[in-house]
Design a protein around this nucleic acid. Structure first.
Lengths: 102, 102
DNA sequence: TGAACATATCATTATATAATGAAGTGAAGA
DNA sequence: TCTTCACTTCATTATATAATGATATGTTCA
């Protein structure tokens, strides 16, 4: 495993390892949404959400398109959604294995 | 998606979203290793590695067994290794899609 | 027993980053 | 054009955590 590969993995994981950002990504799993929709749905401040969107976009996890005065954000790829599913499966499996060994 | 679920995902992702910890986990993918083996392999200080091992163990990602004066660490489950493979696939797919759309 | 080794813990310091509030940019419609 | 609305950016503050060096614990073996 090259150092470079480790670093890109860490960057990706860091992008999702935040409660607000993960909630944003989960929300975008349903459909594309505007900033203000996300602000209302998550109950965080607009500048806070905007900052997290910026970070997620830089890391390539989401993309955006402008339509009039609205900016719509969506997942950049279906592989992101697949990864989140895999993460859910993993946590369920870990919990099950922990119970079994108890 | 419940808040609780988001939090457990974040905790898991945070555990891996650190260069030293991810390198530890990658190293343990090969086989179980002692603390001193990891110290040598990663070139970090003993207390630093020990601290990261502690965190990884608390989060359920690795387990340990003592044998004489050595403590052997290993992945707690094969699903951890599968997850890392999925992560690699994901990054490759994201890079490919980024190139295609360029 | 005591010396050497392996590991864990603790206190301190440095650093990164999340949240906040205010100000700035740009589009839409009266 | 002026106002409103949607969003971004910036400066500041607060907080979490990684690294470090020193010390403590526990094991083995002479």
């Amino acid at each position: 495993m090259t150092l470079n590969s480790v670093e890109s993995k860490v960057r990706f994981l860091e992008s999702l390892a935040d409660k607000t950002r993960l909630r944003i990504v989960e929300a975008l799993r349903e459909r594309e949404k505007t900033v203000s929709q996300l602000v209302q749905e998550l109950g965080a401040s607009q500048s806070n959400i905007s900052g997290h969107l910026r970070l997620l976009k830089i890391s390539g996890i989401i993309k955006s398109r402008q339509e009039g005065k609205y900016v719509y954000y969506s997942l950049s790829s279906s592989v992101i959604a697949e990864f989140l599913t895999k993460l859910e499966d993993l946590l369920i499996a870990m919990k099950r294995e922990a119970l079994e060994s108890a």
